[in-house]
Design a protein around this nucleic acid. Structure first.
Lengths: 203, 203
DNA sequence: TAGATACGATACGGTATCGTAGCATTATTC
DNA sequence: GAATAATGCTACGATACCGTATCGTATCTA
C-alpha cells in the first residue's frame, strides 16, 4: 500500500506543464529541468536505466522535489516520454509516391538519430508489462504514423490508390521494414533502402 | 576488476552442455535445470527482470552452484537465450509464393506465442548497450531469417525472381511488417495480414 | 571403498534503488 | 513586509541485487 504523499498545494502531479500554465516560477523551473534531464538520461540508458537518483544528480533538482511533482518514478518517465514526440509534417508534393518517399526518408533519419535508437526498444519492453506505458506508447506511435495515414487517405481521394485500401496494412508494409532493419536485422538503414521499399510496396 | 572464481574442475563456464557431453550426472542436472528456469523467467519478466536469486529460487539450485557454472549473470542469460531459438523448417511446395506464405504464417504463429512476445524487446534493448548480447542476438536473428534466404535464393535459381534480387531487402520487406505489427503498432497480427503482405511485396 | 568433486545452506559485503521524514532555507504572492 | 509555499539537504528504512566465502554433506569416479 502506498502512503499518502505530501504534494505541493498545486497538487497537479503530472502534465501540469501542458494543461495549464504554472504561475510560480520555481515550479516551472523544476518541472522543465527535471523533464529535460529525464529525457536525456532516457536516451542515454534507456527506460530501466533512468533512476530518480541519477535524474536528481543530473538536473540539480533535489530528489525530494522530484517526488513532490511526480508521485512515482514511472509517472515521471511516462511524462518525459510523451514530450519526446517529434511530429513530422505532412508533405504535399503532388504525387503519392513522392509524398510517401519524403515521409520514409524522414523516418529513416529519425531512426538513425542516436536518441530514439536507444530509448524505443526499452519503452516497448516496458510497455510489454505495464498497460499505462503501453497506452502512452500508443499515443507516441500514432504521432509518427498519422502523417502516413493522411497521405494515404489523400491518395485514395485522388484515385491514386483504389478505394477500400487497407490503410493500417499499407503503413505496416511501408514503415515496418525500416523498424525491422534498425532493430531486428541490424543492417544498415539508408535512404536508398527506403526508396526500394516504396517502389516495391507501392508499385 | 573481477576476482578469479573457483570454478569446478571441468572449468567449462558456458555452453559445455552443447560442446561435449558431461559425464557427471550432477553437473548435467544443474545446468539443464538452471537453463530451463532461466528461460522461463526470461519469458516471464524479460531480460532485466531475470535475477540470479530468483533463478535460484525457481530452479531449486543453489546460487553458489549457479555461479560455479556461469561466471556472471549475463553469461547465464546469454546462454539461456541461445537455447530458445526455434529453427523453422524450409518448405518446398513448388512455387515461391506458397513457400514464402508458409514461412510467413509460421512466423506469425511464432510472434503470437506469449514466450517470444515478452523476451525479444528486452533482448534488443539489452543488445543496444552490450555488444556481447548484440552478437548473441544476431545469431538468433539469423536463425529465423535463414529459411527465407534459402527460399528466395532458390526462387532466383528457378527464375521466379530476377537475378540480382536484393535478398536482405526482400526479407525486410516481407518480415518487417510482421514485427512492426506485433511490437510497434500493436495491431492484431493475423494470417490474413501476412498473406496481404506477401501479395503486395511479391506480386 | 576412498578420494575427488560437486552441491547446498547460510551469511556476508557492497551497491543501487525507491520512496519518505524532518527541518532549515529561499522565493513568491498578497 | 509577512505569510505562504516550494525547494534543498541529509538522513533514513526497506528492498533487491550481484557475487563471494566458508563449511559441511552428498555423490560420482577410479
Amino acid at each position: 500500500m502506498r502512503k499518502k504523499r505530501t504534494l505541493n498545494k498545486l497538487d497537479t502531479p503530472a502534465l501540469a506543464l501542458h494543461e495549464a500554465e504554472v504561475l510560480d516560477e520555481r515550479v516551472r523551473h523544476s518541472r522543465i529541468t527535471v523533464l529535460a534531464a529525464t529525457a536525456e538520461l532516457l536516451f542515454d540508458r534507456g527506460f530501466a536505466g533512468a533512476s530518480v537518483d541519477e535524474i536528481s544528480r543530473r538536473s540539480g533538482v533535489a530528489k525530494t522535489t522530484i517526488y513532490r511533482h511526480w508521485p512515482t518514478r514511472v509517472d515521471l518517465l511516462r511524462d518525459a516520454c510523451s514530450t519526446i514526440s517529434t511530429p513530422q509534417g505532412v508533405p504535399d508534393t503532388g504525387t503519392f509516391e513522392a509524398d510517401v518517399t519524403a515521409l520514409m526518408t524522414n523516418l529513416v533519419d529519425l531512426l538513425r538519430t542516436a536518441k530514439w535508437t536507444s530509448v524505443l526498444p526499452s519503452i516497448i519492453d516496458a510497455a510489454e508489462r505495464d498497460p499505462d506505458i503501453a497506452n502512452m506508447y500508443s499515443k507516441l506511435q500514432r504521432g509518427y504514423s498519422a502523417p502516413f495515414e493522411t497521405v494515404i487517405l489523400r491518395a485514395v481521394d485522388t484515385g491514386e490508390l483504389p478505394a477500400g485500401t487497407d490503410v493500417a496494412m499499407l503503413i505496416a508494409a511501408l514503415t515496418g521494414p525500416l523498424f525491422y532493419r534498425r532493430w531486428f536485422s541490424r543492417d544498415p538503414l539508408t535512404d536508398d533502402f527506403a526508396v526500394q521499399i516504396v517502389k516495391r510496396v507501392i508499385r
